[in-house]
């Protein structure tokens, strides 16, 4: 088993954070993991992305060049990372901010209105967790419980009070994607 995930969006959308959550969860489950951020002369509102590898084997190259999954939170990220997904891979598109469809037909594509759902939940900041929830439901790289276990490790003990809303966001994302899967079968 090896999942190579690219997560991309604007700085501030929490793409690095959900990457770290996935990585932590993988570690909790005794898998081999690696998290590599893009870094550069970037600023708030600029583009950000990270590559996460979760594997039953040792992690070779930490650079995700041929992603098994891409999660894209904004349009520039869709343009940049759609071509990098392996054939048969998965693409999760934040359809709240991206009104464009994927071009490829050799990958599985899921459209998640992450921002709208987050708004309904009353906290815009959990849009990243909504799309993460959808991804976890489809690909099952790690358990949702492991993600929640890693939450305070990534965000600090002070943020423990935010676990319920984040849990709800994960569940909502899973629910939306289940409906999409049911519709396509």
């Amino acid at each position: 088993m090896e999942e190579r995930i690219t997560i991309a969006g604007f700085g501030g959308q929490g793409v690095m954070a959900i990457g770290q959550l996935l990585t932590y969860a993988g570690m909790i489950e005794d898998k081999n993991v690696s998290w590599l951020p893009s870094y550069g002369p970037e600023m708030r509102g600029g583009t950000a992305n990270c590559g996460v590898t979760i594997s039953s084997e040792d992690v070779g190259s930490p650079v995700v060049v041929d992603a098994s999954t891409a999660i894209v939170m904004n349009k520039p990220s869709l343009d940049k990372f759609e071509p990098t997904i392996v054939e048969g891979g998965k693409l999760f598109i934040n359809s709240s901010l991206i009104d464009q469809k994927a071009e490829r037909d050799d990958i599985e594509v899921y459209y998640i209105p992450a921002n709208e759902i987050a708004e309904e939940l009353g906290n815009m900041k959990v849009a990243n967790m909504v799309i993460l929830g959808a991804y976890l439901e489809v690909a099952k790289p790690v358990k949702v419980e492991s993600i929640l276990e890693g939450f305070t490790k990534v965000f600090g003990e002070k943020k423990a009070k935010l676990i319920p809303i984040n849990k709800k966001a994960l569940e909502k994302g899973a629910e939306v994607v289940r409906k999409q899967m049911a519709a396509t079968v």
């Binding site: 770290q20 570690m27 993991v33 998290w35 590599l36 951020p37």
Partner: peptide, 10 residues
């Protein structure tokens, strides 16, 4: 190198 400095691993 910059990669090992920036990456997170257990």
């Amino acid at each position: 190198d910059g990669m090992i400095g920036q990456m997170m691993e257990p």
